[in-house]
């Protein structure tokens, strides 16, 4: 399963693709099952065609956890929540069940193939 994410151009906010829009909450993101991979790719392309709206859209792997889907990689969980040293900053500040589910996500995370990050700078 995959979700499309990006950073919003104007403020850098982490956003997710949902039905042609960019939303701030991970829980609201469209989830593309393996058989829908093409739709995920289309969403990435749609994001790339909106260069004044978002920066660098890409797919992330997600998996079902005990309390719902969560990003597989630790990096993406932190993007979906906020910094762990400041629990009142970022998306996690909103609290609620969806945030708690993400925070409870466990299991070995896995890199999503976005290695060589320095090259992106």
């Amino acid at each position: 399963m995959k979700v499309v994410t990006a950073n919003r151009l104007i403020d850098g906010e982490v956003v997710f693709w949902r039905a042609g829009q960019w939303v701030e909450r991970f829980a609201e993101a469209d989830v593309f099952a393996a058989e829908d991979a093409e739709r995920g790719d289309e969403a990435v392309q749609a994001g790339k065609d909106q260069p004044t709206l978002v920066v660098d859209p890409y797919l992330i792997d997600i998996a079902d956890g005990p309390s719902g889907p969560a990003p597989v990689s630790y990096r993406e969980r932190i993007r979906a929540l906020g910094p762990t040293n400041e629990p009142d900053h970022g998306k996690q500040a909103e609290g609620g069940a969806a945030i708690a589910a993400l925070q409870a996500a466990t299991g070995a995370a896995r890199s999503t193939g976005r290695v060589d990050l320095i090259r992106r700078k």
């Binding site: 950073n7 403020d11 850098g12 906010e13 982490v14 260069p51 004044t52 920066v55 660098d56 990096r75 932190i78 993007r79 906020g82 910094p83 900053h89 970022g90 700078k121």
Partner: peptide, 23 residues
């Protein structure tokens, strides 16, 4: 939209502005 991100990135970096995980 007059500058692409690829064109703009080195300009913002020369002014210390990075795009990080959250902002």
């Amino acid at each position: 939209g007059e500058l692409t991100e690829d064109q703009f990135k080195p300009l913002r970096l020369m002014n210390g502005l990075y795009l990080q995980l959250h902002a």
